[in-house]
Design a protein around this nucleic acid. Structure first.
Lengths: 297, 297
DNA sequence: CATACTCATTCAAATAATTTGAATATTTTT
DNA sequence: AAAAATATTCAAATTATTTGAATGAGTATG
């Protein structure tokens, strides 16, 4: 009896409030009224306070009793959920799954999958972060995330497994009132030198940073997310390659226009990456659902 | 035994991890090792999972066991704190005290008192909100706060008690580059009509709003906090009366200058207000500390 | 490579805690 | 005024936990 507040007492308190009387609570708990009296007076003598005011006919909660009831319900819920989470974990379902999504992948490409996961496993929390280039890889290596989605050209790594994810096509974009928007022919490399390139910074914190798709000598503005890059191009601040899925809404509404290049940027294969040690079932669910079928890439 | 996760088991888990073995945990809990074994296997059979891996010599936590340990510690802490909070509440110490501070009062006027309270009662949370004019009164009436600090000319109200707090002197301020800053003589009322007045809106949501210190016909900009008012005057957007305690830092650094008025605004007496029904000890602490000594006003 | 030590479990017995059921007193409902 | 409902108390019955001794397995130590 080292603990003044015991779960049995909180359970009794909850039942009394819910059913309106000690007698009704006892019935709900499949116990006899005197057992409920015993549990409550146990709590009261442990704490040395009155939980119920018994001056009238029916017992009524004191302010301290109401505090115990209301906060106690949180504790009851937490302890039940902890038990359930431990059971799921023992069955290899993670309590939480952390996803790093590379900037190449537009958020809406994952909405359906995330929605399906939440519907199937409402108790498992997802934590998504956007990373860029080396940052996505690094987040996985440093165990800040469990699954990296949409990594281009992943370096080899011990203990890392991969599966093909999707193929990202790039469109070269500028704002509709940008000078390049009036050029009819496919753009050669030296025609781009005069225009600022918007590039997305590598989000790696410790591993060496990489850069992607730069034409030497072109002035540039570096931003930290693909969303910023799209906005910067829309504002006419510069031009650049954007993943088709990211550019599509802006192209459809006319906020961006596409220009052909003399040497188009090739399609980028991207991958799912995860640490090979004992993947949990939630991680496996995502791998199974997201990897592209063999032979389609 | 309706609860799968019992506090005794979480306590045992904590002691085992803390002391490194079942035997050491048993000693720390003043129990025999087999009792600890019993508690843990109880937990395991309730949940139907393994909490320890016993394949080696020493038992080692499974991932599910680690989850139970780590989250369980939160539950243990919460249940201990709940017991303590209930005891304090029974002794008439509120678990939380909500203060509404009128915009007339500068935050730094309360820092010392708030610091002293936290030092004396670290377990009692304070929640402070800034209100203006009728809003301060309303927050008290509607039981959103327990104590209103710095209310000017409070209306009478049933069940509301009051004590004098302090006296607020007003200084008429403008920006140093404002045209009024060059006027040498005390300003008459009709000299102010051409300049925008910055006024603080009444924050009352339901009760009738009040306005304070307005000269009829003067253009005005209404802001929601005294801090915004000071900033607006510093920016030269307008002029206005400010409580001396609020204006003092800006006057000292030259961001504001004071002008004399032909008819100076009188000193404002302000009050503490609280609901008279059974004040708790934390509320009483603030009333005792903040009310100005009788005879000094 | 024995020997002593530590670790965790099992089991029956001892102890402690809870639950029951009957008796009681008080208040509300009929 | 009688009947029904409420909560408590107490001793007895039941259930749960703790103990202590026995066991087997793994680790240091000389």
């Amino acid at each position: 009896m080292s603990h003044p507040v015991r779960l049995e007492a909180l359970e009794a308190l909850d039942a009394i409030e819910r059913h309106g009387s000690f007698a009704a609570a006892a019935a709900a708990l499949y116990r006899v009224p005197s057992a409920v009296s015993y549990t409550i007076s146990q709590l009261e003598s442990e704490l040395g306070i009155a939980v119920f005011d018994r001056s009238g006919h029916r017992a009524v909660l004191t302010p301290a009793g109401r505090l115990l009831l209301e906060e106690g319900r949180r504790i009851l819920t937490a302890s039940r959920e902890l038990g359930a989470a431990a059971q799921r974990l023992a069955d290899n379902w993670e309590p939480e799954l952390r996803l790093a999504v590379d900037g190449l992948i537009a958020p809406h490409e994952l909405w359906e999958t995330v929605g399906a996961f939440h519907a199937a496993h409402p108790a498992i929390n997802l934590r998504m972060s956007e990373e860029v280039l080396g940052g996505t890889w690094e987040a996985l290596i440093e165990e800040r995330v469990d699954l990296a989605i949409g990594v281009a050209e992943p370096p080899a790594g011990a203990g890392i497994r991969r599966a093909p994810f999707n193929e990202v096509a790039f469109v070269f974009c500028c704002a509709p009132d940008h000078p390049l928007a009036r050029v009819e022919h496919p753009l050669a490399e030296d025609e781009l030198r005069d225009w600022r390139a918007i590039v997305v910074a590598d989000s790696a914190r410790h591993l060496s940073a990489r850069s992607a798709g730069l034409l030497d000598g072109q002035p540039r503005l570096t931003v930290t997310t693909m969303h910023s890059k799209i906005q910067a191009i829309e504002q006419g601040i510069g031009v650049g390659h954007c993943p088709a899925a990211w550019a599509e809404p802006s192209l459809a509404s006319g906020r961006l226009v596409e220009r052909a290049l003399a040497t188009p940027r090739p399609i980028q294969h991207t991958y799912l990456l995860w640490r090979s040690a004992a993947p949990g079932r939630a991680l496996q669910w995502f791998i199974d659902r997201l990897q592209c079928p063999p032979g389609s890439g």
